[in-house]
């Protein structure tokens, strides 16, 4: 968990103001959601399946257009336009849930890591230096650059995805259930890696998960979502220890505990 705390005078990297998203005219995925992510902090978004967490990440990544509301990147309004997408690249990147479908099966690791650098105009020695740095960050070796995704395990693939997200040196990484498809040991390794990288790089995370244990470990602030609505939002310790909303209480009560766990 980072030590960064949001402050009124710092500009949020990304800000959603009263954002709603309605699919097919009747399915409300997001309902009047307001959320800010400040530099260096981790905001955890929790909720059950279908609560609108992934739609929130897609809207923030400009992959879905909000039905209403306003979005801001570093204080400036953004939309689905080409100009806004250009502003977003280099500032925000993402890691998705499924490491198996997140990597182009026909790209080597080198090609995958070069992907975000091309549009940023980073070539030659600088690109090479950044790739080597990203590889070292996620504890992969230079020999892995020539390999294809099929030659890696799920945990290794997710580390390649994290390296790709890091290589463009964004201010914010949106992590949509990045550890859900991994087993407990690999999950712990990936979380440790993310925390270590945050401490080194001061990168902010919007961490979307259904796992309260994970969010407890990584988040500075938490937003709890139910049926597309943010029902409770606040500092991690405050929300997890003294939940106010009945749904948050219900979520906390449903966390499975190992026998003998206090």
């Amino acid at each position: 968990m980072s030590t960064a705390v949001s402050s009124a005078d710092s500009t949020p990297i990304i800000e959603l103001r009263n954002v709603s998203k309605v699919f097919l005219g009747s399915v409300t995925a997001l309902d009047d959601v307001s959320l800010q992510v400040f530099p260096g902090e981790t905001v955890g978004v929790v909720g059950e399946s279908g609560s609108g967490k992934t739609t929130l990440s897609k809207v923030a990544l400009l992959l879905e257009e909000p039905t209403s509301g306003e979005m801001r990147l570093l204080g400036e309004p953004i939309s689905l336009s080409k100009e806004s997408r250009n502003k977003l690249r280099g500032v925000v990147h993402a890691v998705f849930q499924d490491p198996y479908s997140s990597l182009n099966p026909r790209f080597t690791v080198r090609q995958t890591l070069l992907e975000p650098l091309g549009p940023l105009g980073i070539k030659g020695d600088e690109a090479k230096e950044r790739i080597m740095q990203a590889l070292a960050d996620v504890e992969l070796s230079e020999g892995d650059l020539r390999k294809y995704p099929a030659q890696f395990s799920g945990g290794q693939r997710q580390r390649i995805c994290i390296a790709r997200a890091l290589v463009g040196r964004p201010s914010l990484i949106i992590l949509d259930e990045p550890t859900s498809s991994l087993d407990a040991l690999v999950q712990a390794k990936v979380l440790n890696l993310l925390l270590k990288l945050q401490a080194e790089r001061n990168v902010a995370y919007l961490f979307i998960t259904h796992d309260l244990g994970v969010v407890n470990r990584v988040a500075d602030r938490i937003a709890v979502m139910q049926h597309g609505v943010v029902v409770e939002q606040g500092l991690s310790a405050q929300v997890l220890r003294n939940p106010e909303h009945p749904y948050t209480k219900q979520l906390l009560a449903s966390v499975p505990r190992v026998k003998g766990d206090s």
Partner: peptide, 10 residues
Amino acid sequence: DFVALAEIAG
């Protein structure tokens, strides 16, 4: 997802 991530990267 890899196409969506490529679009995000620009």
